[in-house]
Write a protein that binds this DNA or RNA. Structure first.
Lengths: 161, 161
DNA sequence: CCCTTGTTGCCAACGGGTCGCAACTGCTAA
DNA sequence: TTAGCAGTTGCGACCCGTTGGCAACAAGGG
């Protein structure tokens, strides 16, 4: 659900419908602002990511979601759209260790700590990497760039108590 | 293994031949110690890794190398052997961001810092990760396990001066 | 030296991802 | 409002790393 619902509105049913329509319109504007045509397929993809609410989706995940919502979408098109939105800076590609390309909506810069037990992924701030950055520089002359890093371990829930 | 050579070895050329034969014999013992048969294919794979001298090899790299040395080896067999040696603990699988599985001979525990410019990979000690480990634990309750981590950045040679 | 069983070679298949191309449709200019 | 031109889509073939089935084969213990 979208967090900003300041406007006093009627029924809950109305809220939901309104939100979706509203978001679709926003997305239409967003796409056209990027010089991309607002096709139903692209709108569907954007909806999938809004629905995922921060989680990462593979191109196939997106494809499944959109198709399940009665919007015609070819698999190859799903791949192309996701790649296009990434080029446009709207999405960011992240690869976990299974080698499958996944995508998330581009937010402020962060890294990922992925739980090897449950697959959950924790967003890690850039600041948390600074001490490591210093160590690598001092010990190896290796520069930890701003590329998003991928760390493996156990999340708070899965860590042994 | 010809113990006569052992006695007579004096030239460098001799040393080299001896080294290879010797290593093959060692590998034979090594394999049988693991309960695996010492086939020419497996010996060839082990030779590929000895030749690689610490660098990582994909299953296809191994295949190419072994074939180039006139040892019959099928591609699927290369994949199976490499997987088997990994199960046996002799090799370790590492995945860079291209999603291709690569392997290195299992040595003491370390992580990899890979240069995004030239592809070089720097071995990072576990100690260098300790400060990060603490930070992640404090900030997120996330436990950085002993899994080998993969860091992206620029090596000393490629880093801007 | 033989027999057992681990291994190999061959080849088809699989899954994520890409590509070429013709048909289609947002969008804009008239 | 409409015509028309790109930008897009759907389709289907294809690429490439990797796996699986299966029959032939050979390492090495007895």
């Amino acid at each position: 659900m979208t967090s900003s619902e300041h406007v006093h509105d009627s029924t809950h049913a109305h809220d939901h419908v309104h939100d979706t329509r509203d978001a679709d319109q926003d997305n239409r504007d967003l796409l056209r602002g990027l010089g991309l045509r607002a096709t139903p397929q692209r709108l569907g993809v954007l909806r999938a990511f809004r629905h995922a609410n921060g989680r990462h989706l593979s191109a196939d995940d997106v494809w499944q979601f959109v198709r399940a919502h009665e919007i015609g979408l070819d698999r190859s098109t799903a791949y192309r759209i996701v790649a296009g939105l990434t080029d446009a800076g709207l999405l960011k590609e992240v690869r976990f260790h299974d080698g499958v390309a996944r995508f998330e909506v581009q937010t402020r810069h962060h890294h990922h700590a992925v739980c090897t037990r449950c697959g959950a992924s924790v967003d890690v701030t850039n600041d948390a990497m600074n001490s490591l950055r210093k160590e690598l520089m001092a010990a190896y002359g290796f520069v930890l760039t701003d590329d998003p890093q991928l760390l493996a371990g156990l999340c708070a829930d899965c860590a042994p108590a």
